[in-house]
Each structure stands twice: as structure tokens, then as C-alpha cells.
Design a protein around this nucleic acid. Structure first.
Lengths: 236, 236
DNA sequence: AAAGCAATAGCACCAAAGGGCAATCAATCA
DNA sequence: TGATTGATTGCCCTTTGGTGCTATTGCTTT
């Protein structure tokens, strides 16, 4: 069914690592199978070994030997990628280490980050995880654990992109509204009735209805409940 | 301003640990100052030292020398506490260790958990944090770090209780609805108009209006937008 | 059995929402 | 400068929502 059977290098005896993934996510995980994985490690041997594994698993593995190398290339592309992706990064590296990379990536729309480290102190793990890393793999780690984590990372990336797209769409559509339309809709969302909106905006009732109508059309909703949901879901 | 000045035992030179707390949270943090902190550690000296510190800070510190001792007492009270609270627990303990406690507490409506450990392996920290622990303090740790973490924990506990109360209230109020009222409201939330609701429920239009009216009153809303928000916010 | 309550529903009225049609006015475009 | 476009508005009609008053029915309480 999956490609696991073709992998002699991987311990495939237990699937327990996947148990935190719900049945509902399985479909999505299928779509995530072909995701992009940025691999950063200063040890060429590890890079090559992991790249082989990930390639075999069907992931598009993009290897870098330093965080700077990755950052240089990414700032051109502005950390955008059309599809699920994540970063798998070593912690102990010269110049920019994994935690430093994490700090730099924060607030940059970075994808999920998975850290890994050799004989590392617990404090690094704590710092990394508290700063939002999805997992902290301690070398040598189990391939199953790695793959499960990456799968989780790609699912999260995918969900984030859906959300981003959704709120982008909403902002897009909101930007189509004229100022009046925007104001009217805001008052509608506050529960004001047309008459009061007209009064407070100092325009005619008929005009409020007009703007309300156009705004509904531009936002792609027909019913009030849909309007409220649209804004409510893209708020949290 | 705070009681910090009275504490000679505590390094109060830097407030940096608090920087992740927004201005908006400050009010709430005031209310959290007097929170309950369950302290679990098998080392009596540490328990006594930490209890002193926490007592001085104004927290209600409740010490236990083993996780079992705590669990025994809590299962009677069903892990309920009217107000913000959290658990500060050592990882390395005989019988039930911190991670085991964490596993037992999950799905039990447990409060935020802060783990601490001496010369611990990174794997324990990773496991603890991945399982949802708020922080993993490595002994010896900075008192500021501890207090900042506890403050965060109590704020989170407080917010959780607010949410729980809110959705409990909603369920409470929903349970006041008769079946008809419930069905009508559900259809209203789907955007159906009264006429169609009447048709599909095979009752008169006037009756739909009647149930709608009573349901609004029972749910404590007057406007449609409020109804939608009420259900939307208690869904996610 | 009488009273009370919830569900149902008819009648009537008013307020609010939705929208078609047409006109005015100002700014912008060709 | 004439044409176009967008914002604004009035007039008018229909649909929908909200409510008061009343009445019937069936079940529960006293």
C-alpha cells in the first residue's frame, strides 16, 4: 500500500508512531506524501543518509550544509512554497545553529520546524520545543519517529496554507469593498439594523440597502449567517 | 509594586522572562497572582524551598512528596478547582514519575503542567514538552524563569476555565431548549427562513416563530448575529 | 376534576429586509 | 466636451421577521 515495503533500511515492524494521527487525517496525509523537506545539517554523511531515506519515501528533499546557505536562497523566494513543506534542521552547527535559525525564521511565515541533535543538552531541546519546534529528535533516532514527525509537519504546513489562503481570500474580497460598504458591513456584523446604520452613517436607508447588497455580492455570501461565519472563522 | 522587593533569595535583576506576556494580559495576571500550585517532588528539601518561595509570592502552594499521594487526593475532588491552578512536578521520582503522571492526567481535565528535572536526559524533556507540558525546568533553575512559567501556567488555566465555563453555559442553555426549539434553531443557523423551516418541520409558520422566539430568549440572544457567534465561538 | 403548562396555530399588524426602476450629482475617461 | 461610472437617493412593492391576542389540544400537577 505505502512504499514502506520497499525499504530494507527502515524498521517497519511497528506503526505505533502513527497512532497520534487520527483517521480523519489519513486522507490529508496521502496528499502530503509528496512534500518538500528542507534538510539542514553540517555533517555531509548525515545529509546524504537522510536524503536517501527521504527520497525513497517520496519526499522532495532539499539538502543544505549550513543554515546560511538555506537562508540565502530562501530570502529570494521569500519562504514561499506552493505545497506542504517543512524544515528538518540540526541544532549543533557552526555559525548559525538550529536555534538561531529558529529565531530568525520566527515571524517570517516559516514552515513547521523539526530539530535534531546529537548528544545534546536538555536545555537546547527545551528551548527549541518551547520556541515552537514540532519535535526534537535525538540522534541516533528511529526512522519511524522521523517519518511520523515529518508527516505531521507536512500536514500542519498544509493546514496552515489552507488557513492562510482562506484569510487571504477574505482580505482579498474585503479589499474589493468601498469604504462605505465596509462600514455598513461592520455595523451589520455588530447587529445594527439598516435604519440605525443609515442614521449613524448619515446616509439614506435606501443607500444602506444598496451598499449592503453590493457588499454581500462582493463577499460571496447571500445570507446573514454566512456573513457572520465568514468573519468569525477568519478572526480566530 | 509586586512583592518581589521582599525577596532576598530571588534574583530580581532581570524582567526579561516576562517579555512574552502582552500588555493585554497584565490585568488577567493580576487576578492570577493568587493561584493554587500543586508541587510534587520526592525531595523534601526542594519541596520545602520551593514552597517557601511560592508562599512568599502569594501563591497557594500545595506540596506532595509523590505523584500517587497527589492522585489519591485529587480523584476525590475530580481535578476540579475554582480558580487558576497548575501542577509543578519533578520528573525523576520513584513509582509514578512526572511523565507517567502526565500520561495519567491527560484527558482528565488536568491543569497546565510544568515539569522540572535534575541532570535529565534530553529525551525526557522532549517527551514531556511534546506531551503538552508547558515548560521543562532544568535544575538548578532560575527563580525568575520558574515564576514566569507559573504565571503563564495560571493564565492559561484561567483562560481554559473561562472557555470551559462558556461552553458549559452554552450546553446548559441548549439543554433548556425543547426538541422543536432545538431543531428550529439548528435550521436557523443553517440559514433557512421561517417559511422553509415550517414546511420541513411540518408545522405552521406561526409555530416556528413561536419556537424561535422562545429559543432566542432561553439562549440569551436577541439578534441573529449573536446567535451565530454564540455557536461559532463554542464550536472551535 | 380543575388548574397549569407546553405545543400548536390562526389572525392581524408593524417593522425590517430585499430589491426593481429611475433620477441626481460629481468625478473621471475618451 | 460628451460619455461613462460610481455613489447617492426616492418611490414602491414584496417577502420575511417579530409579536400580541386568542384558541385548541393533550399532558401534568394539585
Amino acid at each position: 500500500m505505502t512504499k514502506k515495503a520497499d525499504l530494507p533500511t527502515k524498521d517497519k515492524s511497528k506503526d505505533g508512531a502513527l497512532k497520534s494521527i487520527t483517521i480523519a487525517d489519513k486522507e490529508m496525509s496521502q496528499r502530503c506524501l509528496r512534500g518538500r523537506i528542507v534538510l539542514i545539517d553540517d555533517d555531509p554523511e548525515i545529509v546524504s543518509a537522510l536524503k536517501s531515506l527521504l527520497d525513497m519515501e517520496g519526499y522532495a528533499c532539499e539538502p543544505y550544509l549550513s543554515a546560511n546557505e538555506f537562508l540565502k536562497e530562501q530570502f529570494l523566494n521569500k519562504l514561499k512554497f506552493p505545497g506542504p513543506w517543512c524544515i528538518l534542521c540540526d541544532v549543533k552547527m557552526p555559525e548559525v545553529d538550529g536555534l538561531e535559525l529558529q529565531r530568525q525564521l520566527i515571524n517570517l511565515g516559516a514552515p513547521p520546524l523539526v530539530l535534531m541533535s546529537g548528544a545534546s543538552g536538555a536545555s537546547e531541546a527545551v528551548e527549541g520545543l518551547r520556541a515552537g519546534a514540532l519535535d526534537f529528535l535525538i540522534k541516533p533516532f528511529d526512522a519511524d519517529r522521523l517519518l511520523a514527525t515529518l508527516q505531521r509537519a507536512l500536514i500542519i504546513s498544509s493546514q496552515r496554507q489552507v488557513n492562510t489562503t482562506k484569510s487571504f481570500d477574505l482580505n482579498e474580497r474585503i479589499s474589493l469593498l468601498s469604504k462605505r460598504e465596509f462600514d455598513v458591513i461592520n455595523r451589520v456584523l455588530k447587529g445594527q439594523i439598516n435604519r440605525d446604520i443609515a442614521e449613524e452613517e448619515a446616509i439614506a436607508l435606501r443607500t444602506v440597502k444598496h451598499h449592503r447588497h453590493l457588499a454581500f455580492k462582493k463577499l460571496g455570501v447571500t445570507k446573514l449567517v454566512d456573513l457572520v461565519r465568514l468573519f468569525e472563522q477568519n478572526k480566530a
